[in-house]
Every structure is written in structure tokens, then in C-alpha cells.
Design a protein around this nucleic acid. Structure first.
Lengths: 249, 249
DNA sequence: ACCTATTTGTGCGTATGTATT
DNA sequence: CAATACATACGCACAAATAGG
């Protein structure tokens, strides 16, 4: 019996709650007994067992008969700096992760009024839309959709497909340097097609970043919307070089 | 019957999908008919109706017998700047929203090793933990947990309860100015107690911001973990004053 | 005024999944 | 493991409102 009527089963909510407590470090290395957890969440022990089974399948923990349930060592989130000069490849290599970008698709479109304003173009101007996937350390991290002026960057699709990097593709188009003007961040549930590409659960959560890059003269180059898998990385905005303190209870 | 084994009901997934298409502007002002949606998602019309009912309860749309289902005008997300000098009250007032902070609870604790490093204190140093709620324009926006040194800020709890503002509470403790050193952003499903306080659905998504504030001399003042309701605001990091372009198709 | 096609709203029966005892 | 109660999902049918001819 669910009772709450929000379409999420009880064992799934218990599993989500336990996972959140695990990643926030509430438990040591061993979980409380199933009976204790059942009492704490106000559910039957069967329901707790179902939740623990789901978390076990995720690789988060393992149960040992007669001993208890133990938390597996969890890999920390990748740190992804957002700032005026953030570069995907550099960021990943600094964390010893092999970066690569893969072109999913591309299309020629016309600028909507909002896109035209963002990119400093006339409404209806020809754009190139790139759908791409970012992978680091063998793990898919994000799905991006970016728009370029088709007039200024006619060869950007091929250049990206070849190099697997926006920075290098822009360099081939004569843009030696660029910086991020603005980043807007929100979060939502992942879209189904993205879940397939990112090889993640259908109910995963993504950090959505909408940003505008400009060249050295301040002219807009690309408008990009990236969906980062929230459980694989965290975005870091730092106001001082070298500041990288980490709190974990 | 669900078929999948992720503990999330079919109508809930359909509702999430439709909501995501609504906010991304896929539909005009009217949704496709229930029969069309049912075919598109491969579910029964009853299941679509259940999803639409949930979205209707959220205020996202309304159905009219014999005419169809129409999208309600959706209120835009509040803009929340993150930068070295961001202030909650100032940000909200700039958007004509009446800001206020409410103290939920407070407790005296001892610094964990990680907290001690972040706040520049000795491990086990006495801390004050404040649990607070931020409201703007009559709507709950975020839940925060912040830690202060109990030695340096013995009266911070009362000062916050009285003023409803961290900035003013710090001013009463002799901190005239402070800035944000670092902000780490990720996202997750809301925790159950927070959902009650923020008056939002149990399956809402929160942007989690972990940040450190320092005084004019660079000494750490507070470590704060804020959970923002992702569907009510977006975090904006801007590298140029006055840059506030917005793209929406 | 009438008919018809479309679309939402409602009812019932059945099968399966969920949660408790 | 079994029995029970409830929620979920489906399929079919029909009622009620709307819009157009």
C-alpha cells in the first residue's frame, strides 16, 4: 500500500532515502539492521529488503547473511569547474580522466527570436545544431546541444566530429580563444532519449546548464545546453585560485 | 503492472515526460489528445489521464471536456545569482520579491574533521548548526543548513531568529562584510522532511549548493548547504555585469 | 434544429504489482 | 511461503460537451 499516491513505490522512496544518507556519510561503513531501518521508515522489513536489494544492484552496498549490510567504497563525484575559462578536456585531464566528445547528430536550423538575441544574430538566421556526448574515464558524463552561426562556422560539424572537442573545432575555424559569458543552472529529471545515450537509470537527475560563449572581442560564438548526470559530478564555482576545500561528514 | 522494475509507476513517468516537454516548449498552448498521447507513450488512455490529472493538480494544465487539454501560462523560474558577493535579500528585492528567512532549528555540535578543515578550526571545535528556510514572494524557495564557529559567533542563533537574515545576523556579530569563497553544485531528489517544509511534491528535485563564506580577511565564517527547489529557480553565474540573456524556444 | 466527428469524463471487469500481516 | 488489501495498468464501452457542417 502506498498511501501517498505520488506514483513512487514505498521501497523506491526508502531506497532513495537510504542512498542519500549513504552519500552524505550518515552511516559509517555498516548500515543499521533491517529491523531498525524498517522501524525508522515506518515500513515492513520486506519493504526495506526490497530497497536494499535495489541499492545492492546499483553496487552501493552488499548484505552478508548473519553479519549485516555493508556500504561499498563509493567513487567520489567528478569535479567540474564552471568559470569564464572552463574547458572540458583540461578539466578532465587534471583529474586523470581521458576525455572525449562524440557527435550524436547535427542539423541546420533557423534561429528562434530568443536564440537570435543570445547569439547576436537576426531572427531566422541559419544555425547549426550539434548534439554531442561527453565521456571521461570511460563513463558518459553529459549530453549537450549547442548552436553556432552557420554563416560564421560552416565547417564546425566536421571539425567537431574529427577532433571530438569544441575547443579544437573552434580553433580550426579561426577562434583561438573564447570564454564563458554566462551560465544558468537548474535541474530536472532526465529525458528518455538522453537516458539511453548516457546509460543511466530512466529516473536519473540531470544538472542543466545553459551557457553562452563569446570570443576575445566579446562576440557570441555558441549557445549551449548541457545535461550533466548529477550523481556523477558536481559543478564548482570558485572565487579564488586554488580553493578546493571539501566537506564531507 | 509496470514492466520495468524501478519502483516508479507508469503514469508518473508519463507525467514527468509531458511536464518536461511542456517546460521546454514542445507543445503550443494545447496538448495532443489523450488518445494521441496514449499511442505515443504506448500506454492506456487511463494512464495518460492519471498523468494529466497529476499535472493539473500541479497547476500546469487544465482539461476541458469536448475541447482538449490546455497548458496554463507558466511562471518563469526566479533568477538566483551565485557569485562572490551574492546576498539572498538583495537578489530577491531586485526581482520585486519580499524575502524572509525562518529559523527551523538550531543545535550545538562538534566539528567533524572535514568541517574543521573547511572552517579553519581544530577537529572537535564547538559549532552552531542553523536549520533555516528561505521564502520569497510568499513561496518557499530553499532549505539550508549552516555551520558557524560557536566560539566566534555565540549569539548567531538569536540574531538570525530576530532578523531573518544571515547578513544582518553576522553584522550584529561584528562581521560587516563577507564573500563567498567557493560553491559546489549538484542535484538530487528532495529528502522527505524538506518536502514537508517546502510544501512541494514528495518527488521534487533540489539543487544542492555547498558553499564557504569568508570575512574580509579571508577567514572562514560559515559552511552552508542549501537545497533549492529546482523548479522554482535557476542559479546564474555571470562573468560580466549586466549580462542576463535568456534563451527559450 | 439536426446530425456527426472529436474529445474529455466515467464505469466496470480483469490482471498484475505492491505492502502488510 | 501464503493470504490479504490496495494500487496500478489495461481494455472496452458509453456518456457528455464541443465544434463544424
Amino acid at each position: 500500500m502506498n498511501g501517498f499516491e505520488d506514483g513512487i513505490s514505498r521501497w523506491r522512496r526508502v531506497a532513495d532515502e537510504i542512498r542519500s544518507e549513504i552519500v552524505s556519510g550518515t552511516f559509517s561503513s555498516q548500515l543499521p539492521t533491517e529491523a531498525v531501518l524498517a522501524a525508522r521508515f515506518g515500513v515492513n522489513r520486506h519493504t526495506v529488503r526490497r530497497a536494499l536489494a535495489a541499492l545492492g544492484a546499483e553496487g552501493l552496498l552488499r548484505s552478508e547473511r548473519g553479519r549485516g549490510t555493508f556500504i561499498n567504497p563509493l567513487q567520489p563525484r567528478i569535479t567540474y569547474p564552471i568559470g569564464s575559462r572552463a574547458r572540458f578536456s583540461e578539466n578532465m585531464m587534471r583529474q586523470s580522466l581521458e576525455p572525449s566528445g562524440r557527435l550524436i547528430g547535427a542539423e541546420r536550423t533557423a534561429a528562434t527570436p530568443a536564440q537570435a538575441i543570445a547569439l547576436g544574430l537576426a531572427a531566422g538566421a541559419p544555425l547549426l545544431r550539434l548534439e554531442h556526448l561527453a565521456v571521461a574515464g570511460g563513463m558518459a558524463l553529459s549530453r549537450s546541444t549547442s548552436y553556432f552561426s552557420a554563416m560564421r562556422f560552416p565547417d564546425i560539424i566536421g571539425a567537431y566530429a574529427e577532433t571530438g572537442s569544441i575547443t579544437r573545432a573552434l580553433a580550426q575555424s579561426g577562434v583561438e580563444d573564447y570564454r564563458r559569458l554566462e551560465t544558468r543552472i537548474t535541474a530536472e529529471r532526465i529525458a528518455t532519449p538522453d537516458a539511453d545515450l548516457l546509460q543511466c537509470p530512466a529516473d536519473a537527475i540531470v544538472l542543466v546548464s545553459e551557457a553562452i560563449d563569446v570570443d576575445a572581442e566579446g562576440r557570441p560564438i555558441q549557445w549551449i545546453r548541457t545535461r550533466f548526470l548529477a550523481d556523477r559530478l558536481e559543478l564548482v564555482f570558485s572565487n579564488e585560485a586554488g580553493a578546493a576545500t571539501r566537506v564531507r561528514d
